[in-house]
Write a protein that binds this DNA or RNA. Structure first.
Lengths: 189, 189
DNA sequence: GCATTTGTGTACCAATCGGTAAAGTGTTTA
DNA sequence: TAAACACTTTACCGATTGGTACACAAATGC
């Protein structure tokens, strides 16, 4: 019997998908065992803190992904208009054209939100901040770009909820393209 | 010892608040017992179907409220512009200036979403439909008002998630007023 | 080659889960 | 006034929950 050796990071993607689909409270250890193929022994070897540490690891992983692929790209993109366009493309792909929920939103809307308040706050604060700065670089009126960023970051979350509720993933793309259109209006005077 | 007699409808508001705050899976019968002050016997007397029937009753109650106070007001308001303005005011008040989540959104973002798919779909479909029709009556370009309604209904959900995550209820009001502003642009040609 | 580290499987735990059964109390109705 | 009804209380059920203990196997380091 060949032993299949796992590493901590191999589990995180599966963990993330499970939490996304079933929520924090809806994800039991037995469900995790089933989805990952790992027994409790292995699970608690990687995550001594149990379920809470698993969720924390997943959230940290997601934060890192967004920092690397979205926030940094916004800040460091030479052409801010192009960078914003790239952000929308990345978001559409990351959320699988509206078929995948945002785990940050899922946690925020669950009873476990206070346990992960720091991660949630950081994620949304960073996104709003970086997007606002890039909008300003792109020529949006300075007084407005923080509010516009807020509207967009929130709009993305709402569009995901809406798409799932309407059972119409395409609704996500429609809202996304409207939000994108808002970015190119009211260019710098 | 005076016996306190309860009616089914008396429990529903407390039930709603509990589900809102703790999510569907996070709301246990013992938590419900604690919040409502009712024992399991009484609970199962009112809701023989248990937790699922309780949630269904709450969702039905919410649907009825929105139908009566939002959707009907949109459809029957003589002045469509005023009706839309009233909708935003009602929404701001219903969601307690961003301090209260939408239970429909909470369920949609939970693992229980498929169990209540019909209710979720109906709620969002009706809202989008009625708002789109009112926008058209208000003079919005016919080709656009369905998409605009979608953007607004989704935007409200997202703003609630955002406000909770940022621990800044005021973010809800800010997004709300931006969404409202979108309604008065592009008047009929 | 031997010890240590890294990962796995199994058995177990108290606590809680959602749900049931039935006796009891008060209120309405006939 | 007696039966029917509406609500409550208490005790109980098997299943599942998150978590622990520990023996065990494979890879790794010296």
């Amino acid at each position: 019997m060949s032993r299949i050796v796992t590493e901590r990071k191999d589990v995180i993607a599966t963990l993330a998908e499970t939490f996304r689909e079933h929520g924090y409270d809806g994800t039991s250890l037995s469900l995790i065992t089933e989805k990952t193929g790992l027994g409790k022994g292995s699970l608690y070897h990687f995550f001594p803190g149990g379920k809470e540490e698993m969720a924390e690891a997943v959230l940290a992983d997601i934060s890192a992904w967004f920092r690397a692929h979205i926030f940094d790209a916004l800040r460091e993109g030479e052409d801010p208009v192009e960078a914003i366009e790239a952000m929308f493309a990345s978001v559409d792909s990351y959320f699988r054209q509206g078929r995948r929920l945002c785990l940050m939103g899922v946690i925020a809307a669950s009873g476990a939100h206070d346990r992960f308040a720091r991660e949630l706050n950081g994620y949304f604060t960073d996104w709003r901040t970086e997007l606002a700065a890039t909008l300003e670089r792109a020529g949006a009126p300075a007084a407005e770009c923080s509010a516009l960023a807020e509207e967009i970051v929130g709009g993305i979350q709402g569009a995901l909820i809406l798409a799932r509720s309407l059972e119409d993933p395409a609704a996500f793309g429609r809202v996304l393209s409207r939000l994108k259109a808002r970015c190119s209006m009211a260019p710098a005077s």
